[in-house]
Design a protein around this nucleic acid. Structure first.
Length: 317
DNA sequence: CATCAGGGCCCTG
DNA sequence: CAGGGCCCTGAT
């Protein structure tokens, strides 16, 4: 168990509009002991250069204040790197003014856009870490994903006590390289064990993969992602939006999202995916995935204080 | 008890 | 390019 001490505070300015809660807390995400959110903000361990830093994000008048926790004092260059990394992962550098203007006048988006104005696509994880999560999402139900995630964190993750929360940093790819397939399968991840071994090997051998992808346009990044074993259309879609912040990454709509978007956009149980995509790209253009994200998170948030039977039925935790 | 799809993807024919 | 197989689980 790592004992992390408060070391520094970073102010990150964010261009308006900005919605702190909508950015750091995504109601649609499955629960995992890798981050926590409450009255005292967002807590998560973040890996940088082989070190684990505890982070606490809170809203500030100019954007975000990030408190950094570490075992030892953190020098200025590391703080700069952490600031840049937090800014990227939480989409704090994005200019959403164009989207806000468009969404305010859009009949489908209006309500969600008002409520969450300035919400950004965000992901506290590195690309490798998010890829591990999407691997756990593949071809299963959420309840099993939660179990697999927990057992892998307990076995390979790094326990961190942070803000009174018992959290885990996701394992580094090096940890899974060279282990026996059977060892992973014992955690009941099934055929995904092979994917974990292959992607971990890939990331160890391509340490700058994520940085390289951040520089690429969407199609080029998608192509590189597809070359990674275990990454198909659904996973690419998650990674392009949540990790790489492509606001128009709506090439793929998987069955679960299809059902939910059919309700949210057409008030209908099931609309063909081509129709959903066509509508979204026509109406929302370069922001089509961001728009879908607003509808999605707003629905999951509403669900926490009003009854939405059709959504309850689709979640089945 | 058995069956089966689930927030995919790989591989084969 | 279609479709079978894959690990395991809980819903039926």
């Amino acid at each position: 168990m790592r004992n992390l001490i408060r070391q520094a505070e970073i102010i990150i300015e964010v261009n308006p509009p900005f919605n702190f809660v909508g950015t750091v807390h995504k109601p649609s995400h499955f629960p995992a002991p890798s981050s926590a959110f409450g009255e005292d903000g967002f807590w998560a361990p973040i890996r940088l250069d082989n070190m684990i830093y505890g982070t606490n994000l809170r809203a500030s008048p100019v954007g975000v204040v990030a408190t950094i926790y570490a075992a030892d004092p953190v020098d200025a260059s590391i703080l700069d790197a952490l600031s840049a990394e937090i800014s990227w992962r939480f989409g704090l550098g994005l200019d959403l003014s164009g989207f806000a203007e468009m969404a305010d006048a859009d009949p489908v988006l209006k309500t969600a856009a008002h409520r969450w104005s300035g919400m950004r696509p965000s992901c506290a994880y590195s690309l490798y870490e998010l890829l591990c999560i999407t691997t756990l999402l593949q071809n299963t139900v959420v309840s099993r994903t939660v179990k697999m995630m927990r057992s892998m964190l307990e076995r390979y993750g790094a326990a961190v006590q942070l803000g009174g929360h018992h959290l885990y940093a996701i394992w580094r790819p090096e940890v899974l390289v060279g282990i026996e397939d059977a060892e992973l399968r014992a955690l009941k991840v099934g055929y995904r064990s092979k994917t974990f071994l292959r992607i971990s090997d890939f990331f160890v051998n391509n340490p700058s993969f994520e940085q390289a992808l951040r520089q690429l346009p969407k199609e080029a990044a998608a192509k590189r992602l597809r070359e990674v074993y275990g990454v198909g259309p659904a996973t690419v879609w998650y990674l392009l939006f949540e990790s790489l912040k492509h606001l128009d990454a709506l090439e793929h709509i998987s069955p679960w999202e299809q059902k939910i978007l059919s309700r949210l956009m057409f008030d209908s149980p099931l609309v063909p995916v081509d129709e959903i995509r066509g509508f979204a790209t026509d109406a929302w253009g370069e922001y089509c995935m961001l728009a879908v994200h607003y509808l999605f998170e707003d629905a999951f948030w509403r669900r926490t204080h009003e009854s939405i039977p059709w959504l309850d039925e689709l979640i089945r935790l």
